[in-house]
Simulated scan of single mutants.
Amino acid sequence: MLDQLKLLLGISGEEQDAVLTFVLDAVTDLVLSYCNLDEIPPRLESVVVRMAADQVRSEGYGQAAAPRTAQSVTRGDVTVSYGSNASAAAEITGAGKSLLDDYRSQLNAFRKVRW
């Protein structure tokens, strides 16, 4: 799954393997817990990889911290405002949205009821 994740993210080399493995493990644990499974079925692996890719992109794992920029600049009676990457990401994903939200319907097909 690591090779598939690197392919999706356009990463070559092994510099980020530790971070990507961590994210894959975390997403795998999340899916196993949600679905009440002991191991990931082969048909669910692609969903786990896509979820991990979304997590890496949204959290910016393995990337240097973004430089701080001015949010607003005023010159005379002209004001220019710039948004941050964090605010743009929040607008795209929505505040309080869980990683599971986008994949819940796919995961429900594999979910086992616990008694």
Rank of each mutant, 00 (worst) to 15 (best):
L99G: 01
L24K: 06
S87D: 08
S98F: 10
G62P: 01
T93W: 11
S105A: 14
V113P: 01
D77A: 09
T69M: 07
K6S: 04
V47T: 15
E59W: 12
K97V: 13
Q106E: 14
N36C: 02
L100Q: 08
R111M: 07
T93D: 09
T28M: 10
V47P: 02
L37T: 02
A65R: 13
D101L: 04
V80S: 06
E39A: 09
D29E: 14
D17M: 11
K112V: 08
E45F: 02
S98D: 14
N36V: 03
A70S: 11
Y61P: 00
L8K: 15
Y34R: 08
D38Y: 05
R50P: 00
E91D: 13
V78L: 14
A89E: 09
T93R: 15
E45N: 07
F22I: 04
K97A: 12
R57T: 06
T74Y: 03
R57K: 14
P41C: 03
Y103D: 00
D3M: 06
D25E: 15
S105V: 09
V73T: 09
A26D: 15
R43H: 08
V31K: 04
L20F: 13
K112G: 00
G10P: 01
S105E: 13
L107N: 05
V78P: 00
V113I: 14
A53S: 09
L2Q: 01
K6Q: 11
M1G: 06
A95T: 08
E14C: 05
T69A: 07
R50G: 01
C35K: 02
V31E: 01
Q63F: 12
R111Q: 11
L99A: 05
G94F: 06
